[in-house]
Design a protein around this nucleic acid. Sequence first.
DNA 1: CGAGTCAATACGCATG
DNA 2: CATGCGTATTGACTCG
Length: 206
Amino acid sequence: MENCHTPSFCLDLTIGFSSSSPLSSGESGGGSTMRELDINLVPSSGTEEECMEVEEEDESPNGGGPARRKKLRLTKEQSHLLEESFGQNHTLNPREKETLAEILGLKPRQVEVWFQNRRARSKLKQTEMECEYLKRWFGSLSEQNRKLHKEVEELRAINVGSYRHSHLLPPASALSMCPRCERVTAASNTKMSHLRQRQLSAACYN
DNA sequence: CGAGTCAATACGCATG
DNA sequence: CATGCGTATTGACTCG
């Protein structure tokens, strides 16, 4: 990471959604009294133990009240296949969508929504990582900045000490930065600064 | 389609 | 061990 300090991110920000797969069937969270939406039917698997069992009752709980979503959980196989497909292509054309839906035993709409969510969450993850990187970069720049300020102070002190009696005090504008080590050097052609520059240059290559 | 959001479910942890 | 709570995950929806 330290070897890339350019704004054009050379970070490896590729992400792998470790899609914390839907596990354990067991506790189907007490409050599943509400169900609706045949979109949640998973026609494929009667045997899929990972998948939430989907009971089909079209009645809303309160007898006509606003029916609420019953959430489908994809099986490991379904998730895996979707991930695989996403890995190959982040978008689907209608035909691919149909095919995939058929293979998965899902509705095309569900596949479409899954891809939308997947794209959005990839992007979010990416953004979070970039943010994290920028924060660290900022921290390192701040530190660098602090060091440079300190060095400037040191050089000023040296200059004040040595030039006090020589009337050769170089202007502040004569300071320059070594591109190699990013240290500040006095760039004037005085004996003093030549010497100092040589020392610093030598330090760069060590 | 992306962004924002809701809501169901899963999971970890503290408490009694 | 059961329960409640906070939080994370993720399928589905709405809106522009």
